[in-house]
Amino acid sequence: MINVENLTKRYGDQRAVDNISFSIETGEIIGFLGPNGAGKTTTMKIITCFMPASSGRVEVDGLDVFDHSLEIRRKIGYLPETTPLYPEMNVREYLRFVQALRSMPRSGRESRLADMIDLCGLGEVIHKDIGELSKGYRQRVGLAQAIIHDPEILILDEPTIGLDPNQVVEIRSLIAALGREKTLILCTHILSEVEAVCSRVLIINHGQLVADGSPDTLRAGLEGRQRLLVRLKAGADIGQLRQTLAVHEGVSVEELPAAEPETLEFEITGGVNGDLRENIFRAVADAGWVLLEMRREVQSLEDVFRDLTQGGERADNVQ
């Protein structure tokens, strides 16, 4: 449904988006993740026909966004990062204005507006000037604007920014409900939001795509880099332990400075074949050593995110 090919956007010398490619199928709920300045908003501005790419192409339903801009804009509902609202209009006028420009059939406008008021919880503020609304209500009006024409594709750029925790939960469940019937792209740097809503995560860093997969696959991908802390009673032989574990490719055993007397501490990382704890236990037991402690660091999406986006250089691609 959405096809992004070798997309690059330059601002002067800076590449805000650097040669990224991905494609999104109908009905997917995509979490577009990345730290500040990663290029999320820039990518969305190109998909929504706000501005063109420097090179590369974006197709929606097989149509190039630059050449078939009007048709594509009809299919998309977009909540920009800045929540564009006219402060001097009231909520009702604003939504009617958007309906008119969306060329919705006149007869359906009033009832659709009523649906939006229900769905986005705008009943209390419908006759208020937008300039007088709190941030949370402004965000809801922005969301109502994006979905009022029942678009096939919904693009939300940080929809829960500036909301209180209750509102975050509300808006998030609204987004999850919308995602059941639409193709949805959610830009955010809030990981719990992605966990709660998205079926697939794209992580972008310094304009480059560093990960693409479901939250589970991404976590599983990191399991290859699992980290275990093992403490043994003095007398164990690190060489022997290494040898025993060497059957698992990529496992490394490092000795750490012992925190307690008469003990040895190891950090064991890597291993692509899932959980290593059992193997370690057997290796220790077979050698007749004493296992005092073993701790496995569980990877969260947050670890994935940090792992992929920290530091200046490009992280490895986790597929």
């Binding site: 009007l70 009809r74 564009p84 060329s103 604007q145």
Partner: peptide, 14 residues
């Protein structure tokens, strides 16, 4: 300045 231009030009209007 206010960013509403982003709404206006991403609506299906010329």
């Amino acid at each position: 300045k206010s960013g509403t231009i982003e709404l206006v030009v991403t609506l299906p209007v010329t």
